[in-house]
Amino acid sequence: MSESLAPAVNDLSRPFWNAAAEGRLALPYCVATGCPFWPPAPTSPFRTAGAVEWRDAEAVGIVSSIVVYRRAFQSALAEHLPYGIALVQVARGVRLLAHLEDPEAAPKPGTRVNLCFRRLAWSETPVLAIAPQE
């Protein structure tokens, strides 16, 4: 079986990935409530058949929690151990998972971090990552 680590991109998620390619964080918003949400949905999860529009969001957030991989589940990731994944609270109510290249320098949960889109060693598509802390 192929070991591609490419994200699944389709019409529903394409606005996110198009923005990511330009280094922007775009999120779907419920038009009626003005609330952003995740994951993408063709209609708002907050309103029956509610309209959705994509808007840019600030690529910053507060770290909720972190896990650190000590074992690789794909061969492509083995040489990058240890790496982390952070759960980051971004815009109102939206929490996203982001790659953390250096868990030794992990931001403490509760701290504000900048997010970026980065081509990781195994990915052709830029994916969400924690930006190096200043």
Binding site: L5, A8, P40, Y83, L120, L128
Partner: peptide
Amino acid sequence: QFRENGGPHGEEGHIGMSSPIAGAAM
């Protein structure tokens, strides 16, 4: 792990969030 809108245990394979244990750890 590449399932649309996240894997069954919170996986997101493209950032290295793979295998059910990761969701349990998070």
